[in-house]
Design a protein around this nucleic acid. Structure first.
Length: 955
RNA sequence: GCUGGGGUUCCCGAGCGGUCAAAGGGGCUGGACUUAAGAUCCAGUGCUUAGUGCUUCGCAGGUUCGAAUCCUGCCCUCAGCACCA
């Protein structure tokens, strides 16, 4: 029995002691530089992270065994909100958080340490290195860096100075999602910065100002469909709600209190002047702009004061809720009376048809309500569906009707923007951004949208940068292929991106304005090159202060004069040269490996910053994207807790099994789920291979002898497999490689054993090579087995096996396949004949003339490509006149399936072949066999025999 | 909606113009081993049949001597769509 835990620990210690991963420049070796996109220091690793890391380690091990000098460094991304928020929770003794950490094994002392952001980052980034070692990754951890380190900050400052120099850093107004306490936060499904609302969308509303009673006083409604202004019939608000009057510059806006709270972040100097009740407004009129018509204010139950302004303009022709609202009122004189409305007036309100879209008539809202059987404005869910459908159809297929003034005949898509712009130009409207659902920051405060006037952006929309990057991508190795196809489009779509924010964040201060902190994505784009510097900072040879602009300019861009730079930075001249040579040796990066979530953000900015700042020779060479590990319930989240510690998983299944699982369960470009059954199977597989090899080593039956056919077959088979493994690894296809190593070659060995293969030398030599191939995916197993067979060298440091092409003999395998096929055929016939214990089985070798015919047909059909049936028939019917029916049958078949003509031997060879395997067949099938030539028999079965297809007679 | 990816036999997953009824794994069935269980090994796993024939690779057409593989249309499904490394 293989002891997974102790064996794995043992080899990890040996690798560490040998410092295999710590590498330095070696001009005698080709270099290979690979990283995985470092992860945000937000807590523990989980098994999902290990997927990509395992791939990176497998690639590194392969390259190392091929003689490359492999650099695999790692770092921690600590910028942003995560550590701040987590530390705060610990500090405040938040029960759930503290319980979770305790459950994960943290002591009180640890907890105290992680209660400050800095302590949190320090604790976990150290933990990460331990995790890497525990999973058997061989990397250069002495270069470990964290984005909040002072030296790293200097690097980022340099990067931003370069961006500015290249005019890639610009300023313009921006609507940011901000927490009222913390400042800007990222609203996205990963909910890195949030505790709630990651799926919220940022909506751009058009605020329509409907003049009400005073010249400068307006009922303000928020709409996503400004183009429907022509269909307005009334305004909706909540009868029981209290609204407020807000002073905005020199105007007074009437809207919900919640809106007033939000708009103050988007307009300067807003002020609440007073309140006004819904009751007071209902029944009054206001002036709708654009159509310049007085419309009535009516009550409804669907106005939500949290959405928009809490007041809605009503377009019953195209908005299902508006139609139903109207419909409700129009059929209830009592309701109208209770609201103090004149029923006669309400009754007269008619929807106005304004848009013609596909699949709908004049009044889409009415139609959809009938179709979905919506009868009341309280039917909220159905109304939501109805709205979506009408909106979607209208937006993509709709055309404005004649009554829409200058917009008549225009597509809805176009009219929308034009109408909005027109209204704004004439001061009838304004813009307002809002979130589609409630969003709460990690700190517990509300997130809303704030206008920032001079936001800093990295200008990824820059045309030259975009085009240069697209051109560069063409030359890269990018997997999966589909990502490479997508990248140009992603790069084109990529717009200027806000890159700094104000608030209590970790990260580097913007060198041009210290009140800004550089945002977490923007400070992690160029960092692979920084691993070449961090080494010297970490070992104390240089310090953060010395990392000046001149320093980076010199080592990265070859700008400046070395003596001068050395003098200015007080870095020893020789050391400076060393560092520069390191950069020249290691850069560019060969592979950046990361999860699929990086496809549209991290990888594009990683590429664009490299292309924008560094010389062409330093542009990245490859990207590898891996998909996720998902739990049955969805993505395994690093921020949500409830995840088993990776140490527990390693103990339960073993590191090798987990790594093999990742490599073999599917290709890297699909999501996989971490299932106990699967993991156990892989663990069993490892155990099985271990026992199998152990058995072979101790097998007393093996003998020293000259190699026979079956031995040659096994050698050939191994070389075929090895060739596939190498080709697969060169293309980074783990699934194919592991299929060969852990399954197919194992099956070959079983077959060899069944075929009574016993050659000790052959077997041992192959097993030694086989074990090396396991070093990529199950490195601990590989080392252990290697030691068991008596080798002293370390697999991680040895050379990967090479294919011996001279040993590959495809014919040998064809023979083995024939044996398998024959066995299976005989079994099949026995079964079919219903003769469970046959007395005798006769195998017939086809008649000689048929072999001749096959070879002649091969010449005609395959070599000369003659498919003329008539011609062939005439020729060969004449040649073999005594066998006409058979000849014609064979010719028809051969034309249809030329493959039957391939590899045709002669009668003598085939006869000898069957004689040779007779003993094996008899033993395997537990029957007595007789093999005779068809010419020597009168049995009809003998005439059924064909070349490559033996005749079988069961008696 | 836009952009891109997929639909393969009980399941997962290869294959991407010809011995393809379709690798490999899992599951299931039978057998060997074992006191037994597990593990391991052997065989089978579309229907049919003395080794044949027939029907299968989302649906409907088409190209070809020949299609799971190429083309056209349709249906279904997944991912991304912005300040998440």
């Amino acid at each position: 029995m293989y002891d997974f835990s102790s064996t794995e620990k043992k080899w990890q210690n040996i690798w560490n002691a040998k410092k295999i991963g710590s590498v330095s420049r070696d001009l005698n070796k080709k270099k290979y530089f690979i990283i995985w996109a470092y992860l945000t220091v937000s807590g523990f690793h989980h098994v999902g992270h290990m997927r990509g890391f395992s791939y990176a380690d497998a690639i590194s091990r392969y390259k190392r065994m091929q003689g490359y000098n492999v650099l695999l460094p790692a770092g921690g991304h600590a910028s942003g909100n995560a550590a701040v928020a987590k530390a705060k929770k610990v500090c405040e003794n938040h029960k759930e958080t503290v319980d979770y950490y305790k459950e994960m094994g943290l002591t009180d002392e640890d907890l105290k340490k992680i209660s400050t952001p800095e302590g949190f980052v320090d604790f976990f980034s150290k933990r990460y290195i331990t995790d890497y070692r525990d999973y058997g990754f061989i990397g250069d951890w002495q270069r470990f860096t964290v984005t909040t380190n002072p030296d790293y900050n200097k690097f980022i400052e340099w990067q931003f100075k370069k961006l500015k120099e290249k005019e890639l850093l610009i300023q313009k107004p921006y609507y940011a999602t901000v927490c009222v306490e913390c400042g800007p936060v990222a609203v996205d499904p990963s909910e890195m910065d949030l505790s709630k609302g990651g799926t919220a969308e940022k909506n751009e509303y058009t605020l329509i100002k409907l003049q009400y009673q005073e010249p400068n006083q307006y009922i303000v409604v928020a709409t996503l469909r400004p183009e429907t202004m022509f269909g307005q019939t009334n305004v909706w608000l909540d009868y029981n709600q209290t609204y407020v009057k807000i002073k905005v510059v020199d105007e007074i806006w009437i809207a919900s209190k919640e809106f007033a709270e939000k708009i103050k972040y988007q307009k300067e100097n807003t002020q609440i002047l007073g309140q006004i009740n819904g009751k007071e407004l209902v029944g009054k009129y206001c002036l709708a702009p654009a159509i310049n018509r007085e419309i009535i204010i009516l009550p409804s139950s669907f106005c939500d004061s949290n959405i928009g302004t809490g007041i809605v303009t009503s377009v019953p022709s195209d908005a299902p809720a508006d139609w139903i609202g109207l419909y409700d009122l129009q059929r209830s004189p009592e309701d109208c009376k209770s609201f103090g409305l004149d029923y006669e007036v309400i009754k007269e309100i008619k929807p106005i048809s304004i848009i013609q879209s596909k699949d709908f008539g004049k009044f889409p809202a009415i139609e959809i309500c009938e179709k979905l059987n919506i009868n009341s404005q309280k039917d909220i869910e159905k109304l939501e569906d109805a709205k979506k459908e009408v909106y979607k159809k209208g937006f993509h297929t709709g055309v404005m009707l004649e009554n829409c003034g200058k917009f008549a005949g225009m597509k809805v898509e176009d009219a929308k923007n034009l109408m909005k712009e027109d209204l704004i130009k004439e001061n009838h409207a304004d813009i307002f951004y809002d979130l589609s659902e409630e969003v709460i920051c990690r700190c517990g405060s509300k997130v809303l949208i704030k206008k920032v006037d001079d936001q800093w952006f990295i200008d990824y929309s820059n045309e030259k940068l975009t085009n240069d990057t697209i051109d560069h991508v063409k030359t890269m190795n990018i997997l999966p292929e589909t990502f490479k196809t997508n990248l140009p489009q992603i790069l084109n779509w990529f717009d200027a991106r806000a890159c700094a924010r104000q608030g209590t964040w970790l990260g580097t201060k913007l060198p041009f304005d210290q009140s800004y902190t550089i945002e977490p994505i923007s400070d992690s784009t160029l960092y692979p090159i920084y691993y070449l510097i961090s080494l010297y900072v970490n070992n104390g040879k240089i310090n953060a202060e010395q990392l000046t602009e001149e320093f980076f300019d010199y080592v990265f861009l070859n700008k400046g004069e070395s003596r001068e730079v050395s003098q200015k930075t007080d870095i020893d001249f020789n050391l400076l040269e060393e560092i520069k040579k390191d950069v020249e040796y290691w850069y560019p990066l060969d592979i950046n490996l990361g999860g699929k979530e990086h496809q549209t953000v991290h990888f594009p900015v990683f590429l664009m910053n490299h292309v924008g700042i560094l010389p062409k020779k330093y542009h990245p060479q490859g990207i590898f994207v891996n998909w996720w590990v998902v739990a049955k319930s969805g993505k395994i989240s690093k921020s949500k807790g409830g995840v088993k510690s990776i140490a527990d998983e390693a103990k339960r299944y073993s590191v090798d099994a987990i790594r093999l699982f990742y490599a073999n369960i599917a290709n890297p470009f699909v999501d996989i789920s971490f299932e106990e059954d699967d993991l156990k199977n892989y663990k069993q597989r490892i155990d099985k291979i271990y026992s199998f090899i152990e058995e072979i080593i101790n097998d007393k039956q093996l003998i020293e002898k000259e190699s026979e056919k079956i031995d040659d077959w096994l050698i050939s088979q191994f070389n075929i497999r090895l060739e596939k493994i190498i080709n697969s690894m060169d293309r980074i296809e783990f699934k194919n490689a592991t299929d060969e190593i852990y399954f197919n070659f194992y099956n070959d060995l079983l077959w060899y054993r069944n075929r009574n293969g016993k050659n000790k030398k052959v077997l041992m030599n192959l097993i030694i090579e086989w074990i090396k191939t396991m070093g990529l995916f199950t490195p601990h197993l590989s080392e252990e087995l290697n030691q068991m067979v008596g080798n002293k060298y370390i697999i991680a440091e040895t050379e990967f096996p090479k294919v011996d092409v001279s040993k590959i003999n495809l014919d040998l395998d064809k023979d083995e396949q024939t044996i398998e096929k024959t066995t299976s055929d005989i079994r099949n016939v026995i079964k079919m004949a219903n003769l469970e214990n046959p007395k005798k089985i006769t195998l017939f070798i086809s008649e000689k003339w048929i072999y001749n015919l096959f070879n002649e047909l091969k010449e005609e059909i395959i070599i000369k490509e003659n498919r003329n049936v008539k011609e062939l028939m005439n020729k060969y019917l004449e040649k073999y006149p005594q066998n006409k029916p058979q000849v014609s049958k064979i010719i028809t078949w051969a034309i249809k399936t030329p493959a039957i003509l391939e590899d045709i031997k002669d009668q003598e060879t085939e006869y000898l072949f069957y004689k040779e395997i007779k003993e094996f067949l008899e033993k395997n099938l537990e029957v007595d066999l007789e093999i005779i030539l068809a010419e020597e028999s009168v049995d009809p079965k003998s005439k059924q025999a064909l070349p490559k297809k033996i005749g079988i007679l069961i008696q």
